[in-house]
Nucleic acid binder design. Structure first.
Lengths: 227, 227
DNA sequence: ATCGTTTCATTGACCAATCAGTCAACGAAC
DNA sequence: GTTCGTTGACTGATTGGTCAATGAAACGAT
């Protein structure tokens, strides 16, 4: 009797990293447990490089070292796969939260976060590709745009506001820093966004990142300290 | 004898606006003279909305009110059409140069240009779509990225630098404004770039543009005037 | 351990739809 | 009658999505 096709599981979009769970399983289950992560990583790279429409499922499969048909066992359509990638990709960024240390000075923590941002920009090759993905496909998949506005930028703004309040309380920043300029929190992260955009677009002009980073930090501190 | 197909002209990417030339021509020539502009506009809208890969030539033709086959008389391939659109789209932006008036105060001209930028953001529905096009397709068509970096941003920077020098000479801005912060010219336009990006991505969060504009201007003037 | 049986993750081969690009023929303008 | 701008209908290639067949691993019995 020919085996009937199984109904695709398709849920459990991110079972990666749970290697401990697969430890005591047989070879087949172990391989299966790793598939979603494999597929998601390959799909992320392809989507980042080519965008949604120009990415071929066949290429994703090849990159993941499996067949195209196997993808459909885990993700019913290309769009579903794309959504799963969007979540997979943005989850770790969301996780990198900043937590305010009430003991340390505000300027110190600001400098530290600032450096972390620019260092990450240099070393993590995925960040820029992901941002391009967000920009290119956000109007096709509104969920992506929402994530960008609320989680990514919104979270950063929230942390920054806390930091500014902390600095004001400690007398490091001007006592009216927050009220003086409405929207200062957004304005202050703009150079970070812009340099990422510039890197994405390229255009042959190379910016000196360390110079840019310094100018950015000087601007922020200047605004916050100015009486 | 069946008429042999003409070799596609395909050059002359922008014959639009030359209605005077077509004035004394016959009906057929007049219609023909308008075709490239028609096609370019329709293609621009479709490409902006869907990106390169997801745009159908058939849809461009429908929007332009002609048949798909006619497009191929003017542009030999989809890629060629896309390149023509890229040039067509960026030409008028390049043209909107700022010229420094040595008589008027620097702050006055800065405020004026600042307002013009944000007003244009509100009224011109094309600007954002074009920026998305630039971001999405720049790594497919390097020419687009080069245009962004050199012409768009580069031109703006150049004007800004002149303006700052003017203000320094008149004693409006701090005498060391330009040297104090290396890269200040780039940093200063970042909020403008960021708000455009935010509008593109959407995400349901509505920014108050006038509030943003004010915060941006305050930041710039604060930096320039600060001793 | 070893053999036969069952399970099921995996895939090659296959549709059906889409779409860039082609071309012979049409018909309005000249 | 001739020109030529225009197009409907076509093709070939690509690709999202399907499915019956496979074969190795898991398993039970000996």
């Amino acid at each position: 009797m020919p085996p009937k096709p199984h109904t695709a599981p398709a849920e459990d979009p991110c079972a990666c990293g749970l290697k401990a769970v697969a430890r005591r399983l047989g070879i087949r289950e172990r391989a299966k447990a790793l598939r979603p992560g494999q597929i998601l990583e390959a799909a992320r790279d392809e989507f980042c490089q080519h965008g949604f429409a120009a990415t071929r499922l066949e290429d994703i499969a090849k990159r993941a070292g499996i067949s195209k048909a196997l993808i459909y066992v885990y993700y019913p359509t290309k769009t579903d796969l794309f959504l799963a990638v969007a979540r997979h990709v943005t989850d770790p960024i969301k996780g990198a939260d900043f937590v305010l240390d009430p003991e340390r000075s505000a300027e110190d923590q600001l400098r530290h976060e600032h450096e972390r941002f620019y260092a990450n920009l240099l070393q993590d090759e995925h960040t820029l590709g992901i941002l391009r993905l967000i920009i290119s496909e956000s109007h096709r998949v509104p969920e992506i745009g929402q994530f960008y506005a609320l989680e990514l930028v919104g979270g950063e703004i929230e942390s920054l506001r806390d930091l500014i309040r902390h600095g004001m309380a400690r007398g490091e920043f001007a006592p009216d820093a927050l009220e003086r300029l409405t929207g200062i929190e957004d304005i202050v992260i703009a150079p970070g966004i812009m340099i990422m955009l510039t890197q994405i677009i390229g255009g042959g002009v190379q910016y000196d990142l360390s110079k840019w980073s310094k100018a950015h930090l000087d601007m922020v501190l200047g605004l916050l300290k100015a009486g």
